[in-house]
């Protein structure tokens, strides 16, 4: 049950399961990938979560709250998958808030208007779906299963985003301007969500061999652009790229050069909201410590099964 079994399982396109032998590098890579994904879901609650209390209709408020709740759920499915590899959630959370593990840099951009809620659903969730659908076939079983659940829910997210944008585009001039402004700000960061170009991507080859990645960054990016262009036309918004045009020879859309220096800057912690996002997460974690301790303490007392007499005595001892 070692390397040979592992290789054969991968070759046959079967899943690696938690108690199987696996190379250390595979385990480390999976933990990093799943944790980064889990952190992204949890941090990703913040940019949209800021608009729940301000949502301009009760229906939109309910949709947004349900969506942000889903993201907490997705984070939990993923932490659950990471736990099967021996990484516990407390440890991963500490790595996140100390900056030793990353999350998707898209969430370091601010949300400036309610239209951002729609554009995040359409572009950011759309890009995430392109990235994530192939991960439903990841060679690591628990991750693949979590991704199936997540992808099913994400498709609702993208649809609600697009539906909101359609409503805004049918609305007032101010609403339409709000949408175009939002698209202008989120288009390029969405393209960067697929990661660096294949030529510069350090992990791609090994990840493809291990079948934890099924397509290259550039392939997925191209697929996203080709999917999104007709959606933008149907919506009546302009994607902010003068070089964007159909290339009949390639059968794909050509698009302009991405500003990779910006991506590097945001990844390395210099994005507009990096510090704020981590700070919110750290504060919630630290402020919640006494609550988690209390629940653990109460559970320990229950296990010791105190009689109701003991409970009464304890009540009396307390002033």
């Amino acid at each position: 049950m070692t390397q040979e079994h592992f290789d054969r399982t991968i070759d046959r396109d079967q899943r690696i399961e938690p108690r199987d032998w696996m190379p250390d590098a595979y385990r480390t890579t999976m933990v990093r990938q799943i944790a980064q994904h889990a952190h992204s879901e949890i941090i990703g609650m913040q940019p949209e979560g800021e608009w729940i209390t301000r949502a301009p209709s009760l229906r939109r408020k309910a949709i947004l709250l349900a969506k942000v709740q889903d993201e907490a759920g997705h984070g939990l499915y993923l932490y659950s998958a990471a736990e099967t590899l021996g990484a516990d959630r407390t440890g991963l959370t500490e790595k996140l808030i100390s900056g030793r593990q990353k999350y998707s840099s898209i969430f370091n951009y601010p949300t400036l208007s309610f239209a951002d809620v729609g554009v995040i659903g359409w572009l950011v969730d759309g890009a995430a779906i392109c990235n994530q659908v192939p991960l439903c076939r990841s060679s690591y079983g628990p991750y693949a299963r979590a991704m199936i659940r997540i992808c099913k829910e994400e498709s609702f997210h993208q649809r609600q985003g697009y539906e909101l944008l359609m409503a805004l585009m049918r609305g007032t001039d101010a609403q339409r301007e709000m949408v175009q402004d939002s698209v202008n700000r989120w288009w390029w960061p969405s393209l960067m969500m697929f990661g660096p170009p294949d030529a510069d991507s350090t992990h791609t080859a090994q990840s493809m061999a291990w079948k934890i990645k099924r397509h290259t960054n550039d392939e997925l990016r191209q697929r996203f652009v080709d999917m999104t262009v007709p959606q933008a036309e149907a919506l009546g918004v302009t994607l902010p790229d003068p070089d964007l045009r159909w290339n009949a020879d390639r059968g794909h859309h050509d698009f302009g050069e991405i500003d990779w220096s910006e991506l590097k800057r945001v990844i390395s912690g210099d994005g507009p909201c990096n510090a704020e996002r981590i700070d919110v997460r750290r504060t919630a974690h630290e402020d919640g410590a006494w609550v988690r301790e209390a629940a653990a303490a109460h559970a320990a007392k229950q296990t010791a099964a105190p009689s109701s007499k003991q409970i009464a005595e304890r009540a009396e001892r307390r002033p």
């Binding site: 979560g49 942000v68 402020d287 988690r292």
Partner: peptide
Amino acid sequence: LQEWCTHAPELEEEVALANIALDLLG
């Protein structure tokens, strides 16, 4: 309850509080 969003003491409680907030909103 919505104001607790992203501030809950544990992620499971995040989901539970959102459920209650959604029920009341409904």
